[in-house]
Design a protein around this nucleic acid. Structure first.
Lengths: 338, 338
DNA sequence: CATGGCCGTGTAATCGATTACCTGTCCCCG
DNA sequence: CGGGGACAGGTAATCGATTACACGGCCATG
């Protein structure tokens, strides 16, 4: 593969001149033409590895997400990737698979590659690598999930308004025994959603007792199903369940159907995170939709601010309630009317 | 951030010795200890950019896929990423969004970054960049989709057996007016699936006339829905539809429901590509499942063979039919019995 | 006791770019 | 007509690693 020296020789100039032409500096028209011709004839492309070594910038961002197979994170990653690319950056996506160990592994790799900035949607709790990121001066932005003790801007959705709407929705439908399926206590975002929901319910005089708060360390469908089983086995089973993750909601739905029960007749079901598929499940699921693509874009922008040396603030974007049919009453929907 | 020179100074040795210790070459125990101590105290990590410049290897692979938001490709990407990481490689995922132009853009970027090898699940047809990849001697493996005229091993699923099973399944259920929703003619993989299916149907004496072969350049739900509309508007509408992509199947399902028709009562629906959500749609969809994770692993292995200078063969892994309820009869399934 | 080989380690070239600094030309103006 | 400034473009240092080659010390062997 041709390098800058080959181009210089063919154009009869020095490497410095070639570099200047390609980076839009001084040279005069005639020289410039010769260089560009040589570049074209040789099919020359600058070696970004060498360039990065010299300039100490890689024009690459890192994104570590909790679970690539979770459609919420997929869409987030897609949005981040598009925005990064639009701004001239490449993106390396790291998949932590909800394991803090794997997450640290990946952050390590990304730091080694000297990425210009890092976005992390943190898996689980305590990760010493995040501390190292801050110590290494690599610009960092947290995405979707905050991490206590880490001084970095966080971009996420504010669920308050949507959860208030949801509480009102459930109250209006006469559901008075709500339950929640959350990530284990200690996960900042789970705790927050739980608290906001409980507060919203309280304004309608509805309680959320501890036994109707179920959690599982497995954030996939399996975990959701197991928690739903426990909830349904309660002496006073819930008449409405909010799952704080879309995959857990799916598992919960499985358990309901496996028992021959029906949503929403026997129990209402709501998911946090709206994903396209929820419109096609049986029944279509009411969900709290995060502004996923906006979150991705905002994260990239915040990160670029930090990369360029400016401070960046945390960003909170509002989530909203999308009512379908899984609570007993939905919008008139062009679907089969059974 | 500390570099190799800092380590050398602190350990009282030369940079060469440090490099040798870290790469497991000669040095003697005592020197080695001093070096490792210095590495540890300084928190030294080798600069992979500099290393790559020198060694001309980046230990990074590229994967360009057609659409990150399509769950089939997501799972594929996830499998590829895990296997690559297991073998000590990083992965840069590029999202072509079904646009050949964007695909070429991304391939260009990846070549510029001097990735060690490239996997491409090609969007659409004719891409001159793929030719350039071959010309640049960058190891290349095609994934899921072949590209005529490109001499590279291709890893994909063989749909023959599954499509034969499907034809038998439909025949047994008395469906005699099948239709197909495919990508536009010319897309190698679409054509192939179509042909295999037609052949399989023929052995049961079932015809697949041209008017029941619908295609759309839009491979998302929108395209699927539009094609399904045309099919249902036929004077003799089909009683079974195979969509060769999971998102198109989803759009098709939408159209059926929007008309107040029912699956499978009014029309059977089958999707190529099984994704977890199909078990939760209304009704659960019968699908042809590709061995997605195996495909991802095989692609990485084939690519590494080529990177290490050995030839690599194309790989064909069998797909299989997963029967659910969208053709009118499914396995006893723990679901609501309505 | 001299010589040769081996082993551990240092010196310096190298990868391919960017860029500070210097040189040489040309032109303008006093 | 000479001096200075502007500007094009060349020379060489630099980024941080790897690695070919050289060197010196030690041991073994003739």
């Amino acid at each position: 593969m041709a390098n800058i020296k080959d181009v210089a020789e063919r154009a009869g100039v020095s490497v410095a001149t070639v570099s200047r032409v390609l980076n839009g500096r001084s040279p005069v028209a005639e020289t410039r033409e010769r260089v560009l011709a040589a570049v074209h004839e040789l099919g020359y492309r600058p070696n970004v590895v060498a360039r990065s070594l010299r300039t100490a910038r890689t024009r690459t961002l890192g994104l570590v997400i909790s679970d690539l197979r979770n459609p919420f994170f997929t869409e987030l990653a897609d949005a981040v990737e598009q925005e990064a690319r639009r701004l001239g950056y490449s993106l390396i996506i790291g998949n932590a698979g909800e394991s803090p160990q794997q997450q640290d592994d990946y952050i390590r790799t990304l730091l080694d590659r000297r990425i210009d900035g890092l976005m992390v949607s943190s898996a689980g709790t305590g990760s010493e690598m995040l501390g190292e990121v801050v110590a290494s001066d690599t610009p960092l932005v947290l995405l979707d999930r905050t991490v206590p003790g880490i001084a970095a801007p966080c971009v996420r959705a504010a669920g308050g308004a949507a959860l208030t709407d949801l509480a009102a929705h459930l109250a209006a439908l006469g559901r008075h025994r709500p339950a929640v399926i959350v990530a284990p206590a200690g996960t900042p975002i789970g705790d927050e959603r739980l608290e906001l929901f409980a507060t919203a319910l309280a304004t309608h005089g509805i309680a959320l007792p501890a036994e109707r708060i179920g959690s599982s360390p497995d954030l996939g469908p399996g975990g959701g199903r197991r928690v739903m089983r426990e909830l349904l086995d309660l002496p006073e089973p819930p008449d409405a369940v909010l799952a704080t993750d879309n995959l857990m909601a799916l598992g919960a739905l499985d358990e309901v159907r496996a028992r021959g029960l029906r949503v929403p007749d026997d129990v209402a079901l709501v998911a946090f995170d709206d994903v396209p598929w929820f419109a096609h499940t049986d029944p279509p699921l009411t969900a709290i939709a995060q502004p996923t693509r906006d979150l991705g874009r905002a994260a990239v922008h915040a990160l670029l601010e930090r990369i360029e040396g400016r401070p960046a603030d945390s960003v909170l974007l509002p989530a909203r309630l999308v009512v379908r049919r899984s609570c007993g009453e939905g919008p008139t929907h062009p679907g089969p009317s059974h």
